[in-house]
Design a protein around this nucleic acid. Sequence first.
DNA 1: ACCCAGGTGGCCC
DNA 2: GGGCCACATGGG
Length: 220
Amino acid sequence: MKNLSKRQPLLNPYEFYTFLLSHFDPQHWWPAETPFEVVVGAILTQQVAWRNVEKAIKNLKSSHVLDPCKISNLPLGKLEVYVKPTGFYRQKARRLKGICAYIFKEYNGSLKRLFNKETCSLRAELLSLNGIGPETADSIILYAAGKPSFVIDAYTKRICERLQLTDDLDYESLKKFFESSIPEDVEVYKEFHALLVELGKNYCKTKPVCKNCPLSGKCI
DNA sequence: ACCCAGGTGGCCC
DNA sequence: GGGCCACATGGG
């Protein structure tokens, strides 16, 4: 485990959060109607634009299969067709089906039972499933289970780098950095992450879009 | 014709 | 612990 940044950052995370709140509309994430839709979206959005995920979710909804039991019983080929727009579709279909089968087998298809665990053991259990890494696990815990677990994504890492908010930290260290700097509050965690993505999508891409960026001047 | 998007797992050192 | 690779579609 790396040490957290010893140098005084230009902006502390909570100030950064209030700054973002004052510059962007509330995001009210996650864009989904049910916790299970969050789980599916979290898998499907890996390394792909959200608009592609919307197509896949729409396919699943219009086919009336957006349910853990239905998906675990769906032929792989059909599931692949539904999730095709999200790319890596063979992998994602296989993993999604595996995760649904697990929920079906271990929890009788009830996410509530799965989520009725302590955050720490829930996270470990999610991480043990093929297709769920740290970001997906934290997204599910925060936005589907409604428990505090700060989500780190590529934008967040990039923004921290550009603002010199932290040293180059690994996932768990960066997560701890945020969690130790802001109130342990589900709504704060949700909105902060969503705002970081919003900032990232508009201004902090691999090639920075500095024009009109509310952070221009603070960025390196 | 490129480049990139709300990652993960496998393999290697 | 980190670096590299495969995985694949769709929009700018």
